[in-house]
């Protein structure tokens, strides 16, 4: 059992599998292993750690964007005209 991942999953509402798929678990464990719950959530949701975005991936994998079901701006190309479609309901 990975205590950091379990705690992160409980705090963020994203499964351990979803968190691991970001590729950021090891980096975030190193940064936020002993941080407050609010700081851990902020890191996962926005990619910001104490006023700094530690890597482009941290920005791109921000869970706030995933909660909405869109790519972080400047990181994903959904394709010409994709913006015209009704948004899909984000799966909870």
């Amino acid at each position: 059992m990975d205590a950091f991942v379990e705690l992160s999953a409980e705090l963020t509402g994203f499964s351990a599998e979803e968190l691991r798929s970001t590729g950021l678990v090891e980096q975030y464990r190193g940064l936020a292993g002993n941080a407050s719950h609010a700081e851990i959530i902020e890191l996962w949701y926005t990619g910001v750690w104490r006023g700094v975005i530690p890597s482009p991936r941290a920005y791109a994998e921000g869970l706030a964007w995933k909660a909405v079901g869109v790519a972080a701006p400047g990181t994903g190309a959904p394709g010409f005209g994709s913006w015209e479609r009704r948004p899909r309901r984000s799966a909870l």
């Binding site: 409980e10 959530i41 949701y45 909660a67 909870l92």
Partner: peptide, 9 residues
């Protein structure tokens, strides 16, 4: 926290 946060966002 958790699902409530995800849903609220």
């Amino acid at each position: 926290r958790g699902n409530a946060l995800r849903q609220a966002v």
